[in-house]
Write a protein that binds this DNA or RNA. Structure first.
Lengths: 327, 327
DNA sequence: ATGTTTCACGCAACCGGTTGCAAGCCCCCA
DNA sequence: TGGGGGCTTGCAACCGGTTGCGTGAAACAT
């Protein structure tokens, strides 16, 4: 159906290798010939078949991006930044969603392996072992988690968590709950560690939870029962669900309980009360991840670790700790 | 690096064609041989290279899904459903985001064309002409827009708009504003037509707007000035931005103005007030689109049109029209 | 006039699979 | 015992490109 390199060769009276070079090494072909070939190619609507090219060159000029849950508003900015950035490097990014299922994640990686030059693993749910094993098939860059020996882009959630806890402490909250995400989450662990390093606050660890509003909603009872007046949630979605759940129980935010989220998703800005949250440099992370990946594709495994700074955005979901009930 | 079919052939003492058949036509090879080959393949970690296979078969077993803006929470459920459904058919789905840019959209389609068997175009921004032209390169299914001669999945937004307007009319709103989306949007047009068909309400058309909270926020002034007490917004994001903007102006929702969104995104359920909205069957649309696409890939262009019903979900952002000010 | 470069291009093998054709084998039946 | 048919497997061409090598011609130096 579509024109192939041989059609173009025949129509312009040259050998296929000349057509090939016209596109992949133009300086090797006489300008006159080149223009003729280009004209014919244009005329026939010929475009080199990237897949076929990849077969011999080993370069597909595609990148894969694997994400646990596209619905999580944390990812789209990262995805968009990665795609836009990759495009400037003449690469395309294919996104796949694993539905939080490690099995699916592995299957997708294998399927992608031969069709892309490298894969961006965003918050992977796979075990380190599995990741290292699969790494033999295709270069990786891991985002939002540390896997030894692998190029990694981290957002300094520890710093963010510390800022958040200090913010709460500064408002007089003496007892703060950490509502964590999925069990074994690398992020949750870092948050706990960082929070524990802040002096003068009493920490309660709650969870694990699904990292969605549902999870937050479900955690509301626990939080209410914990006696904490400040909460650092796993992410904004959990925070929003939690606020909703607390509200249903008649607990006021920020009057009775202050809540801090993580991610700074757009919806948090529209929430009522507007969410105080740890802002993640997602777009920068997406670009950085692409850079690292292309670098590691080109040069072979350089296991750089990039850590991006986070910041605290104070809005309306946090306020002074309530007076201790004088009962 | 990775094992090829020839490695497996050599290691198991058979010809490559036998290995090939072991995977793609198992019934043609002796069970004994087959098991030996499978064992060796397993041992070497061999997996057929899908791209190479595609070269001869013309089937990549991949689908492309192109979307204007992944950040729009309307799409993720559709994407997830499409991916999950495709997986059951042994297909993989690659998602790409065009950033609302027709240029990028076209480029992505061309890039994907040779690497997938078909493309799902979700709310494309390209002109009908361009779509028809590109259709020569790769089968399409269009979602959320009508392009003649192409398999299409539609959600009956007209019906939804009618339900919404009737709901508002039933609450006593006599003057209703339609806050539309991007200029030339197919969806906006359908909504206008359907709304116009409802008797007894006075319609005001506002817009165009970006289909995001920003757009809604920006439209607040216009809405406040329009004298409408009911609003049907282009989508939930716009509705939420609008509510936020009205709130900033001291206009109460639903006290002073009732707002209906479209899409039924998750965030709308967490909004305060919870959004009354037209629920779109996004997951069903994703599955249906995959089915149509695979069908058209297998059988050649059958230009089916599937229209999926929508429904109205009444929550808290709509209420009785206020008493006319007795000034 | 001869020798040496340089340039442009063709030849053919190769990437990793698939597939139509045919050959070898065994079995069955007449 | 010979012929027909079914199974299993190998052979080789092919999909759409790329690329190392070699050749012929033109350009330049000697």
């Amino acid at each position: 159906m579509a024109a192939t390199i041989r059609d173009v060769a025949q129509a312009s009276g040259v050998h296929v290798s000349t057509v090939s070079r016209t596109f992949s090494a133009p300086h090797l072909v006489n300008p006159e010939t080149r223009n003729r070939v280009l004209a014919v190619a244009e005329d026939l609507g010929y475009r080199p078949n990237r897949a076929a090219r990849a077969l011999t060159t080993g370069r597909t000029h595609n990148l894969g991006l694997i994400v646990a849950d596209i619905s999580n508003p944390f990812f789209p900015p990262l995805i968009k930044a990665a795609q836009a950035h990759a495009r400037t490097r003449d690469y395309h990014v294919f996104v796949a969603d694993t539905d939080e299922d490690p099995q699916v994640e592995e299957e997708l990686i294998k399927a992608l392996a031969k069709q892309v030059d490298g894969v961006l693993l965003c918050s992977p749910r796979l075990s380190n072992r599995a990741i290292e094993r699969l790494h033999a098939d295709v270069p990786f860059v891991v985002v939002n988690r540390e896997v030894k020996g692998m190029p990694t882009v981290l957002m300094d959630i520890g710093q963010g968590a510390r800022l958040a806890i200090e913010h709460l402490a500064g408002l007089g909250h003496l007892r703060v709950a950490l509502v964590s995400g999925p069990s074994g989450s690398w992020t949750s662990k870092r948050m706990r560690e960082a929070a524990a390093a802040v002096d003068g606050v009493d920490l309660v660890f709650l969870g694990p939870n699904t990292p969605t509003e549902q999870g937050g909603l479900a955690a509301a009872a626990e939080v209410a029962a914990s006696g904490a007046t400040g909460v650092l949630a796993y992410n904004d979605l959990v925070a929003m669900g939690l606020i909703e759940g607390l509200h249903e129980r008649g607990v006021q935010v920020p009057g009775d309980v202050s809540v801090v989220g993580v991610d700074d998703i757009v919806a948090g800005r529209l929430n009522r009360p507007k969410l105080t949250t740890v802002a993640m440099p997602t777009a920068a992370a997406g670009r950085m991840a692409v850079d690292l990946l292309l670098q590691s594709v080109a040069e072979g495994g350089t296991a750089t670790l990039a850590t991006l700074a986070t910041g605290l955005v104070v809005r309306e979901s946090t306020g002074p700790a309530p007076e201790p009930a004088a009962s």
